[in-house]
Write a protein that binds this DNA or RNA. Structure first.
Length: 603
RNA sequence: GCCCCCGUAGCUCAAUGGAUAGAGCGCCUGACUUCGAAUCAGUAGGUUGUGGGUUCGAGUCCCGCCGGGGGCGCCA
């Protein structure tokens, strides 16, 4: 945000170093650790170390300090800065707060929802997430995936990438057929009312079917014969699906739609809007063609009929140790695999959608799978392969152990969301008694889902988590509602200010009074928002934004308590602080938006 | 056997190779006749699993070891 000032100073530092024969390599700026003042900082350890390496006998920390002092004298006090100091090898430049504060607030109030948006990057990125299997129900693990993917999509989009959101439901496979089988055999014609009821019912059928089809200990010969007969029926159904049997296909499409309806309803609730839907079943045929091409080009080896079609990735790359191993891309019976379909899908993404970089938000347990996909794409000759990225995340387990759809041991997202709303409502009636019933529900949903989203996004993605309802739905401390509350408090002040708020925001007031450290801290954080967006997007890490949003909210809450706004003595100060409150509110809202969390006016 | 991830306060987690390793929860102390207490201010709590190495500087990078989790030719 202060690039120009920085460049001017960098130029001067370079001149000083050249004149004094100091081997400066690069200048890197960091925000000054906050201690009541606000500014930027750089250090000279690198330059001093360079001298040491070139043979001069120097003590690096001492020499760094000498250089810093030299630079300080050379710079004097540049335009726009209040003071410059050299401490322990660091050069610290403190901003003249009045001018900088005004500039920050003015920028935010001018750009509004666009404050922090990066310049167009000229690249198209596709983020693939929301890949639940159909004929199941959406559980809390799927939720982590969806919220992580959506936050990432919003981040890269806001940072300046043209962004396409893709969903890839697994709509076929033995698990799906298992549900079709039991439905057709025992429940034909039944259909619960209600989108979520219907979706969840499919999961119940799956659990029941699994029990019927799983071998038991000490099973009687009759039971065993029964089970094997069931299994034969199931396999026959899979064969029929594969052969395009009209009856099985119709049944499959109809029940699949029940799942997809539920998925769409949940995504809608989460404010997620998918641009492109890929279905596993649709890439099956293209996948087969790809195998032929890879064989023809000598990348894959056909061991049929004795074995499958494979790619010896390590061998092709000339690696001695096993790393990517050998991947099977076609079963010996000619059917495709997960990997085959991902190859086909990647080709479609590159060629049909023209994506330059491709991000896969998928469980970290599949990291070998994706490494294999990316390496095969590379061997195949796609230049985009190096810009493919697997954003893995740790799986979500329950206090009683891993979730298991087969055993029906899952925590459904819908149940958690409902519970979240209930809990918010119970505290809300006392917090804001004036709301209408309708408003109250709408707000409760925003707060409940905000708590949930923040609980997911505030943990580094590669860590496994145990889902704890009480922790995830906590509203106090480092949580979504804490941040939302800062936004609400800002909104409240602006409402109470009446016409004064309009005056404060239409023409940015001056900040030429003695700012408190609370105000400076707040402005400091606001000014860091654009760089934070860039960093989070560059590193594909929503956590960076989650941490920032909390820090910003903390700064606002502290400011709120310590610094009077409407009660400030002079009108000039009132106006300036009102403008600052408006800027803080806007920045909090922008940050929350990137975390897929609503910023309500009241709560 | 090989590969990947993790190990930081009692618990859950942060920390582009930089200044005194930070938050939340929990514990204890204070602050609502005052812009909304889902808040704030403060106390206590650490040999960053361990042994080496690189570096002016290591929680962070490299190597070994210990502990936990995940993955590895026809599941997804």
């Amino acid at each position: 945000m202060f690039d120009h000032e920085r460049e001017v100073i960098e130029e001067k530092i370079k001149v000083f170093c050249t004149e004094n024969d100091i081997p400066l390599t690069s200048i890197e700026w960091k925000p000054l650790p906050f201690s009541g003042e606000w500014g930027i900082s750089t250090s000279f350890f690198q330059a001093a170390a360079n001298e040491a390496r070139s043979g001069k006998k120097v003590n690096v920390p001492q020499r760094a300090q000498e250089i810093a002092e030299g630079v300080r004298e050379h710079l004097g006090t540049p335009e726009g800065f209040s003071r410059v100091e050299a401490v322990k090898g660091y050069l610290n430049l403190y901003f003249s707060t009045a001018e900088y504060a005004r500039r920050v607030v003015e920028t935010v109030l001018r750009d509004k929802a666009d404050f922090g948006r990066g310049a167009p990057k000229g690249e198209r990125v596709m983020v693939e997430y929301a890949q639940p299997n159909t004929h199941h129900s959406f559980h809390i693990g799927h939720y982590r995936n969806a919220i992580l993917g959506e936050s990432l999509a919003r981040l890269v989009e806001f940072a300046g990438f043209e962004t396409i959101r893709a969903s890839y439901p697994g709509d076929i496979g033995l698990g799906v057929i298992t549900v079709l089988w039991i439905y057709d055999k025992f429940y034909k014609g039944q259909e619960p009312e209600g989108i979520h009821e219907r979706g969840q019912w499919l999961l119940k059928l799956y659990v029941e079917a699994t029990q019927l089809l799983e071998p038991k200990e000490d099973e009687t010969p009759e039971a065993r014969a029964q089970r094997e007969a069931y299994d034969a029926e199931r396999r026959e159904m899979l064969r029929k699906w594969d052969a395009g049997d009209p009856y099985v296909r119709e049944l499959w499409l109809r029940t699949r739609e029940w799942s997809l309806e539920e998925l769409r309803a949940i995504l809608e609730m989460l404010d997620i809007h998918i641009d492109v839907w890929f279905y596993e079943s649709e890439v099956d045929e293209p996948a087969k063609e790809i195998v032929e091409e890879l064989i023809a080009r000598g990348i894959a080896e056909d061991e049929r009929p004795e074995g499958p079609v494979i790619v010896r990735i390590d061998e092709k790359l000339g690696l001695k140790k096993e790393k990517y191993r050998t991947a099977v891309i076609l079963r010996s019976d000619g059917t495709t695999l997960y990997l085959t379909k991902d190859l086909a899908l990647a080709k479609i993404k590159f060629e049909k959608y023209g994506v330059d970089r491709s991000i896969y938000v998928v469980d970290t347990r599949q990291s070998l799978h994706f490494q294999q996909v990316f390496k095969i794409l590379e061997l195949w000759g796609f230049p985009q392969a190096e810009k493919c990225y697997h954003l893995g995340y740790g799986f979500v387990s329950l206090p009683e152990g891993a979730m298991s759809a087969r055993r029906g041991r899952v925590v459904l997202f819908k149940d958690v969301a409902d519970e979240a709303v209930r809990r918010v409502l119970s505290v809300e009636s006392e917090k804001s008694p004036d709301l209408s019933e309708e408003e109250r529900r709408a707000v409760a949903q925003k707060i409940g889902l905000g708590a949930l989203a923040y609980a997911m996004l505030s943990v580094d993605n590669n860590k496994d988590t145990v889902f704890d309802m009480d922790a995830a739905l906590s509203f106090e401390g480092r949580t979504g509602p804490y941040i939302q509350n800062a936004h609400v408090r800002a909104a409240s002040i602006l409402r109470k200010a009446g016409p004064l708020a309009g005056r404060a925001t239409s023409r940015t007031p001056d900040f030429d009074y003695n700012l408190t450290p609370h105000e400076i801290r707040l402005i400091d954080l606001i000014s860091r928002f654009p760089a934070t967006v860039e960093q989070a997007a560059q590193e594909y890490r929503p956590l960076v934004m989650a941490t920032y949003a909390y820090d910003l909210a903390t700064a606002f809450h502290s400011f709120y308590h310590a610094v009077p706004v409407l009660q400030a003595e002079e009108e000039g100060i009132r106006l300036a602080r009102l403008a600052l409150v408006a800027a803080a509110k806007q920045t909090i809202a922008n940050a929350l938006r990137l975390l897929v969390i609503h910023a309500p006016e009241v709560m």
